[in-house]
Nucleic acid binder design. Structure first.
Lengths: 223, 223
DNA sequence: TGTCAACAAATTTTCGACATTACATAAATT
DNA sequence: AATTTATGTAATGTCGAAAATTTGTTGACA
């Protein structure tokens, strides 16, 4: 794949991608010995990559116990979603109010690309394709990219990454009665129409709907 | 001085202290060869220490170019303060609304401890003591600790750490006409009186006042 | 004189060996 | 049976050398 950057950079990206793609089970430990084989890197490199992921909140580090992927819990999901609703709607309002022409272009481009990307590999009910997940990610980032505060955008980005783990592990249930595509279009249209309040409200509904689906999924936990 | 902890721990503390004290010019590079002589540690140790500092935002790491001390940036300080005002006032409102008796106790205790801690080593104008900085940190954390959202508190905590760098750099100017102690008491009193809006407003004033002082300081930069 | 390639120097990054420490489990002694 | 003591496993701490990369310099050629 992409082999640019230092060894640490590569390992960091692969590890993050694997976690977000649901390759590694939430809560499971990440022993150095195994990672060393799987990723072909020394302990120093792995340690550095894991520290970066920990700073982002995708892994946790119990001293003397090593690193683990974050654990999923209903309380955390509730907290996470509430936090995202607050932060993201705030940033979106900023973006809608202050976004320039380039922002509009980025949003349109990202949306178009997402729409044109194949979502499922084997029909509905199967996990979404990595390409679509990526495009989806970029659409939401584009939406917020018009805001002035870089820090706020970084925070929103980290929260989204954490939420992505939940989303990945609840995908099989996303079939039911929901038109995600329509929700996205609604948010975009309101944003580009410079209707800050309505756009933020639509985004909150979008995030809440996802949370509710995941909650329904965890009642019949997989594994 | 303090020789407790591991080698990495010691180097980390010395390096951090030197940066905050302005011993190393902001923006300057930190070549391993020189650090190796100055701090008498191996590359692995230095790397680990620098990584931790980078996670805290005191240094930055351009791959293949090594580490540098962060540069003072007025834009970043403005963005950072604005973000803090938004986040912290929000979390404080939550804490004031939902904090229980234990929260009240924690706030009172932290405040009392901070008031009883010696602030300056050598009279006003000198850097605050590490002990006071610690107590100050814990007071603000206690204030927010009544809020329900763990994620929000974590975000606020990270932002505070980033701001601490600027605060330390601006210390020599903190003498002038400002009663920080009074500001703290005002915030606490309003919070414990369950006056969410007023407390949040006082906190915003507190943060803004600090930013203004730093901005005034950077017009006549030390080095 | 100017450009570019090859080479040399300086720095960062990566690696693996080894000692140390912390924790968990099993064994042994009281 | 309960407490203490070995033992094993895995993370952490430390070091210095080798590999990789960027920067600096020299010299040939147009």
């Amino acid at each position: 794949m992409d082999e640019s950057g230092t060894r640490t950079e590569q390992v960091y990206r692969r590890l993050k991608a694997d976690i977000l793609a649901g390759q590694i089970e939430p809560g499971s430990t990440l022993p150095f010995a195994r990672l060393k084989d799987d990723y072909g890197a020394s302990m120093g490199v792995l340690r550095e990559a894991l520290m970066r992921l920990t700073a982002e909140g995708l892994t946790v580090n119990q001293p003397q116990f090593g690193f683990r992927v974050i654990s999923l819990s209903i309380e955390d999901l509730t907290d996470l979603t509430a936090t995202r609703c607050t932060i993201e709607s705030m940033v979106l309002r900023d973006a809608v109010t202050n976004g320039d022409l380039e922002w509009e272009t980025r949003v349109l481009t990202a949306h178009h690309r997402m729409e044109r990307t194949q979502k499922f590999e084997n029909g509905e009910g199967s996990p979404v394709t990595p390409a679509w997940a990526q495009a989806h990610q970029e659409f939401h980032e584009a939406l917020l990219s018009g805001a002035r505060s870089q820090r706020m955008q970084a925070i929103a980005s980290n929260l989204r990454a954490a939420a992505e783990v939940y989303r990945q592990w609840s995908i099989p249930f996303e079939v039911v009665k929901r038109d995600v595509s329509k929700e996205h279009r609604e948010i975009m249209d309101l944003a580009l129409a410079r209707n800050a309040e309505e756009a933020a409200a639509a985004l909150v509904r979008h995030l809440s709907a996802t949370r509710d689906l995941i909650l329904k999924g965890t009642q019949a936990p997989q594994q």
